[in-house]
C-alpha cells in the first residue's frame, strides 16, 4: 500500500470513529433525536475533550513507539524502554505524595519534570558517543530506578487514601479528563511528534547499521538528541495527563509496518494515526463495557490486549516468520 493511501485510510477510519466515540458511553446519545438530557454538556465538556485527549495521547504513543523501534532497529522496542514513562510516573506519584495533586495543575507539571529528569539523566549518561547499546542500557536502568523510587513512595505514602489514589492513577485512564488536560498534552505532544519527524531520515539510514548510516550523513549525536527530546515530550505529556498506558507504542507500529514500505520514516505518521485510532476505540470500549464499580481502566485494558499480542509476536518470531 502506498504511504498516501495508508494515511487516507487511517484518516477515514478516524473520521468514522470520532463521531461514534462521542455518541457512545454510559449515556448513549442518539444523533437523530438529540433530546437526551444534558446532551450538549456531555458532548462538549465530557466526551469531546476525552476523545481529543485519546487522539493526542494515542498519536503521541504510537509515533514514539515507531520512532523507538526504528532507532533501536528492534521490532520489540517500546518507548517505555527509555525510562521516560517511569520518570514521568515517578514525578506524578511524588506530587500525590506531597499532597500537591490536590492542586490539579501540579500533577502534570510534576510528571513533566519527572520525564525531563529522566531525559536529562539519559542524555548525561549516554550522550557522549551517541552509541545505541549504552543508551538502551541507561534507559533500562533509569526505568528500574524510577520504578523502585515509585514503589518506595507508594509504600511510604502518608495516608491509605493517597496510596489508593496513586495506584489508581498509575493504571492509566482518560476518565474524567477535561479541556485542561488537552491544553497541557496537545502542544507538548505535537512539538514532540514534530521533532520525531525530523529524525525520520536518520532512522531510515540506521536500517543499514551504524557505519553505513554515518556514511550516509547521519550524525548519531544529533539523532540521539532528537530521540530524547521527541520521546521525552510525547511520552512525558501522555503520562502527565493519562497515567501509564503501555503497549500502544509496541502494538501499533507492528500492526502498521506490513502496510508500509518498511522504511522507519514512513511508519511515523501512520503509527500516530493508528495509535490515535486504537486509543479512541479502546477508550470507547472501556466506557461502554458494563463493569461493576465503575469503568475498566484504559491502561489495564490495553495491557490485557497487549501482553497476549506480545506473546503471540514472540511465538511467531520463534517460528521465524518475522
Amino acid at each position: 500500500m502506498t504511504h498516501r493511501r495508508l494515511v487516507i485510510l487511517l484518516v477515514a477510519a478516524l473520521a468514522l470513529a470520532v463521531p461514534l466515540s462521542l455518541l457512545a458511553g454510559r449515556v448513549w446519545i442518539d444523533p437523530l433525536a438529540p433530546d437526551t438530557r444534558n446532551a450538549a454538556v456531555i458532548l462538549l465538556q465530557l466526551r469531546l475533550p476525552r476523545a481529543v485527549l485519546a487522539l493526542v495521547v494515542g498519536a503521541a504513543l504510537g509515533m514514539a513507539g515507531a520512532a523507538m523501534q526504528g532507532y533501536l532497529r528492534n521490532p520489540l522496542a517500546d518507548a517505555g524502554l527509555f525510562g521516560v514513562a517511569p520518570g514521568a510516573a515517578l514525578g506524578a506519584v511524588l506530587s500525590f505524595w506531597t499532597g500537591y495533586a490536590a492542586s490539579l495543575w501540579l500533577l502534570p507539571v510534576f510528571a513533566l519534570l519527572g520525564a525531563a529528569g529522566a531525559m536529562a539523566l539519559l542524555a548525561l549518561i549516554a550522550g557522549r558517543d551517541g552509541g545505541i547499546a549504552l543508551f538502551t542500557m541507561a534507559g533500562l536502568m533509569i526505568s528500574s530506578l524510577a520504578g523502585a523510587i515509585t514503589s518506595l513512595a507508594i509504600s511510604l505514602s502518608p495516608t491509605p487514601f493517597a496510596m489508593s489514589e496513586i495506584v489508581t492513577w498509575l493504571m492509566g485512564s482518560l476518565a474524567d479528563r477535561s479541556w485542561r488536560e488537552v491544553e497541557i498534552a496537545a502542544p507538548l505532544s505535537l512539538a514532540g511528534m514534530g521533532i520525531l519527524l525530523l529524525g525520520g531520515r536518520g532512522l531510515d539510514a540506521l536500517a543499514l547499521g551504524d557505519a553505513a548510516a554515518r556514511s550516509l550523513g547521519l550524525e548519531p549525536r544529533k539523532l540521539q538528541a532528537v530521540m530524547i527530546a521527541g520521546i521525552g515530550l510525547t511520552v512525558g505529556a501522555s503520562v502527565a495527563v493519562a497515567g501509564v498506558i503501555g503497549f500502544v507504542g509496541l502494538m501499533v507500529p507492528h500492526l502498521v509496518r506490513p502496510l508500509t514500505d518498511r522504511r522507519p520514516s514512513m511508519l511515523l505518521v501512520p503509527s500516530a494515526l493508528a495509535g490515535a485510532l486504537l486509543l479512541l476505540v479502546a477508550d470507547m470500549g472501556c466506557r461502554v463495557l458494563p463493569l461493576a464499580g465503575g469503568e475498566l481502566r484504559l491502561g489495564i485494558a490495553l495491557s490485557l490486549l497487549g501482553a497476549p499480542f506480545f506473546l503471540a509476536l514472540l511465538l511467531r518470531m520463534r517460528g521465524g516468520h518475522m
Partner: peptide, 8 residues
C-alpha cells in the same frame, strides 16, 4: 556487515 534491519 550485510545486515539490513527491516525487510524492505
Amino acid at each position: 556487515s550485510p545486515h539490513v534491519a527491516w525487510d524492505m
